[in-house]
């Protein structure tokens, strides 16, 4: 663990803080882009009930898809750089968020939705004021799954030239410095747990205390 606590590694343009910021930026920007795509789609499909099997199939299929292959294929097609990395990350983050939103909305008691229409809400109101607030625990479950996936895949992305904490792992591997690999790995693990905690905190803040049930994370 000496590597991790050596002050020399905590400064400079390739130091630990810079890599943490890079990694974190990959994570939040990817999640933001993925959310803009996935939440409306999942909400629409959940609300109308049309095309749900597609979402379920897509998420299950994705679990089988090796992220390393996805990264490499996207990079081979689009070249090295930020755009291919973000493309691959967004590709992997969209399905869990979409599935979480979809499942959350489908899980809202039909009687509650019936009542919402019955008291005279427009369809938009039914979705935004009733279905989504009650779907939040599962929506957050989707986000947590996606966040783990992104933190994990962003690490691997260093293999195809991206920045972030994965650099330490692959540079360590190349120079046969296990200390550096280990340090990078520990930082990634800590970052993943922290990001997950952030979502747990956000969930506590935004989900109404009247709504029961909380989603747990998906796969990496």
């Amino acid at each position: 663990m000496g590597w991790l606590f050596d002050p020399a590694h905590w400064s400079g343009s390739t130091g630990i803080p810079v890599r943490i910021v890079e990694h974190f930026t990959y994570t939040w920007l990817t999640l933001l882009i993925a959310a803009v795509i996935a939440v409306p789609l999942g909400a629409f499909v959940g609300h109308t009930g049309r095309g749900g099997f597609l979402i379920v199939g897509l998420t299950n299929g994705l679990r089988a898809l090796p992220t390393l292959a996805v990264l490499i294929i996207v990079v081979l097609w689009a070249g090295i750089g930020d755009v291919p990395v973000y493309t691959a990350l967004v590709l992997l983050a969209v399905p869990p968020i979409m599935a979480g939103t979809y499942a959350g909305i489908r899980a809202v008691e039909p009687s509650i939705v019936d009542a919402a229409r019955g008291v005279g809400m427009h369809e938009g109101g039914v979705l935004l004021q009733v279905e989504l607030p009650n779907a939040l625990p599962l929506v957050f479950g989707g986000f947590r799954g996606a966040a783990l996936q992104v933190v994990s895949t962003a690490t691997i992305a260093a293999y195809v030239g991206a920045g972030g904490l994965g650099r330490f792992v692959f540079d360590g591997l190349a120079f046969q410095e296990y200390d550096q690999m280990l340090g990078g790995a520990v930082l990634v693990a800590v970052l993943a747990v922290l990001v997950d905690l952030v979502f747990v905190g956000l969930q506590k803040l935004t989900v109404s205390p009247g709504v029961v049930g909380a989603g747990s994370g998906g796969n990496r």
Binding site: S111, I112, A115, A116, V207, S208, G210, V212
Partner: peptide, 9 residues
């Protein structure tokens, strides 16, 4: 309605 259909949130 039967289950009251109150908004849980």
């Amino acid at each position: 309605i039967q289950q009251a259909g109150l908004f849980p949130h």
